[in-house]
Amino acid sequence: MKLLIGQILPYFTVTIFILGMLYRLGRWAGARIVHNITLSPWLQTKGQVVLRVGTEAFLFRNLFIYDKALWAGALLMHFALFNILVGHLVGFGFLGTQFTLIPVLGITPELSLEMSNLFGAIFGIVLFVALLYLLYRRLAKEAVKLVNKPSDNLWLLYLLVLVGIGNIMRFVPDYHIEYILVRDYITALILFRPVVHMELLNNGFFLVHLLLVQILLIVFPFSKLMHVFGMFAERYIVNRVYHDPAPDLPNVDVVAARQAGLGVPDGNTAGEGV
């Protein structure tokens, strides 16, 4: 198992993930933007487009306007998830000392590690709770029940299990994992060195967590999770700059027309109280 999940599968996962992404994004790119279907009122500058797409993508503008509860749940979920993903990268990368890199504040490595643990703990819980809310919403809200497919619920359950195991490793001292072990493991994988002997892989929770992440990455390019990129691809079509052609009728002189009394019967009414 350790050999399979810890040593062999990761290379397979990365390969499928990359090829899958190329396949899926290629499928999108292969089709063209044929007609101009920009939504109006139109954005007038590139800056406005960036602002609009940015607020949609990072603050969920439309959800905020039309469904506050979903907005709160979705934003918390995605914000926590984003922090956790980045946290994994920098936490393992810098062994928890990442916050010392922030200039001026003068954070010590010890404090940084504390902060890393604290943020990890907070976002781990927030993510779990937000996922629970989104699942509850799928099961309870009438309109959502009507559009739901089994895979929608399954993804939420899957993430709940994945995050749940992560939280166990974070909160149960017996299963806690030192950052250094993970870094060594990843480094070894990158350098194509054997990892099977590593102590880390004796932690069953870690092994399952790792397996679930890999399955997720394998399936990712073929799943609804691609909405992360779909967001930008779709917005690229419907939110773009458009300038109305200037209105102006050729050879029209309203003042002259009114002075000539056009349309007024018996012609010569020029000058009459216009």
Partner: peptide
Amino acid sequence: LRKKFRSFVLAMESCTKCGQCAEN
């Protein structure tokens, strides 16, 4: 048609079934 219109492809592939469109 799906090989031609990206707006269609993305409508097919990006929906997360959040249900917001229903009441709108």
